Amino acid sequence: MASTKSWAHEIEASVAAPRLFRAGVMDWHTLAPKLAPQVVASAHPVEGEGGVGSVRQFNFTSAMPFSVVKERLDFLDADGCECRSTLLEGGHVGTVIETSTSCIKVEPAAGGGSVVKVESTYKLLPGVEEGEYEVAKAKESVTAIFKAAEAYLIANPDAYN
């Protein structure tokens, strides 16, 4: 029987938490195709206006092992720079995992920077071995997202203020 698993990851950044949260989480569907076109071909809202219940879709290039991901925003505290989302389809849903949720909190750090705290909880499909769901690859991908957003914000100091 498949069990629920989770992983946690922290990423340090040199930009303020509210800016990084807005760029790297709330508006990532707009920035990703511009900042990581080698990975994200396109992205767009599917339903909603960005609040709880909203769904957005990311379409990937051949650099990813899957072509699409749809995620739903389940919880949002924009002032507290925290959200939780559920993977609805795409990714490894239906092939490796049954369900997956991610919680992201961006907290202020010393010197005006921030720390991104990510926790992902997932349930493997019956018969799938733990190694088939690559936690290291997932952590690498989330780090790349926030490092790309950080670099963009450093290069564009007036963005997302």
Rank of each mutant, 00 (worst) to 15 (best):
L87H: 08
K34N: 11
V55T: 00
T121K: 15
L87R: 07
Q38R: 05
P33I: 11
A109R: 06
A36L: 15
P18G: 04
T86C: 01
R19A: 11
G111D: 03
G90D: 03
T143I: 07
N59S: 09
A17Y: 00
V52P: 01
V96C: 00
A36G: 03
E47A: 13
V115H: 04
V15D: 01
Q57G: 00
H44N: 14
W7E: 07
E98D: 15
T4Y: 05
A78C: 06
S6Q: 15
E12N: 14
F60K: 06
V52N: 00
E150F: 11
E134K: 11
G24D: 10
F60V: 01
A159G: 07
E12S: 15
E150G: 05
T101E: 13
K117L: 12
K123V: 08
A23C: 15
S54V: 02
K123N: 06
A16R: 12
T101L: 03
N59M: 08
F146R: 02
P37R: 00
N156Q: 14
V135D: 04
V40P: 00
S114T: 12
Y152R: 09
Y152Q: 10
G51W: 08
V128L: 06
A63N: 12
K147A: 10
T99Y: 02
A32D: 10
T95W: 01
E134F: 00
T121H: 05
L20G: 04
T86H: 04
F66Q: 12
K137N: 00
F66L: 12
E12I: 12
S62E: 13
K117G: 06
S114W: 06
Y122D: 02
H9P: 08
L87G: 04
K123I: 01
K137P: 00
A78D: 08
P45S: 14
E140D: 12
A41L: 12
V142A: 04
H44W: 07
N156E: 09
R19N: 04
A136T: 02
V128Q: 05
A32T: 07
L153C: 11
D27Q: 15
V118T: 09
A13L: 06
L35Y: 10
V135Q: 02
I104L: 13
V40N: 02
N161Y: 06
S67F: 05
D74W: 11
A110H: 01
E130H: 07
L125D: 03
D77G: 04
P65D: 11
C83S: 14
V68C: 07
Y160C: 14
T99V: 05
E134T: 01
P33D: 13
V52F: 01
T143V: 08
A43H: 04
G111P: 10
Y160T: 11
